[in-house]
Write a protein that binds this DNA or RNA. Sequence first.
DNA 1: TGGTTTAGACTAACCGGTTAGTTAAACATC
DNA 2: GATGTTTAACTAACCGGTTAGTCTAAACCA
Lengths: 192, 192
Amino acid sequence: MPLASHKNVPEPSFAHGRGFLRTPGTLRRPATAQRILAAAEQAFAEHGIAGARTDQIVRAAGVNKALLYYYFGSKEKLYAAVLESLFTQQRARIEAARRPAPLPRRVSSHQQELIAYVNGYFDFVIEHPNFPRLVQREVMRRGAHLSGIAQGYLVPTHRRLTRAIERGIASGEFRVVDPANTVASLIAMTVF
Amino acid sequence: MPLASHKNVPEPSFAHGRGFLRTPGTLRRPATAQRILAAAEQAFAEHGIAGARTDQIVRAAGVNKALLYYYFGSKEKLYAAVLESLFTQQRARIEAARRPAPLPRRVSSHQQELIAYVNGYFDFVIEHPNFPRLVQREVMRRGAHLSGIAQGYLVPTHRRLTRAIERGIASGEFRVVDPANTVASLIAMTVF
DNA sequence: TGGTTTAGACTAACCGGTTAGTTAAACATC
DNA sequence: GATGTTTAACTAACCGGTTAGTCTAAACCA
């Protein structure tokens, strides 16, 4: 039974398996686990989930293979943890960019919110070049995590941006556009 | 030695390994080999080179595993053969669309050539939905076949289109545009 | 007859995952 | 404060299944 239980694993105190979106506890993991995560991110981005080698990952993390399973349970769960960590960080990044440095006058606050979103995204991608590659791979896999990601990250972002545009239109600062289309274009731009 | 010699393989008469671009002989392969190729195309597109299973491929082709190695020598070479076959077909397709069905008047012959290119490409993609996926995968792999593909397929296509645009400008039928940029846009459009 | 194909046993290497155990620090107890 | 005791962190070695690739001998077939 290759994908089965591993019931004897002592399940560390900061329990990792409590649902994909419920646990922002990624940052509370010990440094070693973080190193495994980083190495895994690199490996999965480069070789995909099937091509990545757990042995290579633990070697890069300077750690024993059993530790990988101690923390993450399985290769598949490790992969999920990598995605979750990245999306959590990205969301935090965009959230943090909500009160941006003031821009030149004639730029309304609603415009600022949109600009801050785009800036936040690009900053994040520059710091995490593996992020788009992994998303790409997940899309090609028609991955099971996609729906969870969409629910937890894309939908809220989409909603926030839509509202910002609607407010901008209502206050007369924006030309009248279809918010849905505009948001779609924005997201498409940042994905490619 | 996993990727090594296989020196005892009797090297079938229509020898497949004589260089990536030198052999348009793909179509001369026996029907059985074509079935293997088709099954491999599907498997590689779905799971990538690391995720695809040779056993699955031969089962889908209704063929013994030894035959795969009889014809293609290795998984890697089979993968290369899949790419080569697809690019060869695509080139033939675009080439064949050079004398297109006459379009409504007011469409010049140079415009027709560009339109034929785009049509040919889309027709091909519709018939071979695995093609873009495999190219995508190859790009993500930074695959070694990329340079050969670029040399053999992209460069000639690029040249032909550039010339068509230049002729169109020279004859006054096209607005004056930068051919390089326009070709890049055309190719980008068809890749996405 | 010779190119093609099969059956299927076989192997070496690989790879995800497990086991049984160690280490060191925190904690408790007297 | 020396003492057992617990616990989180970590490891070496191993296990069993999988996978690419091989080999032989025989059959198929044009």
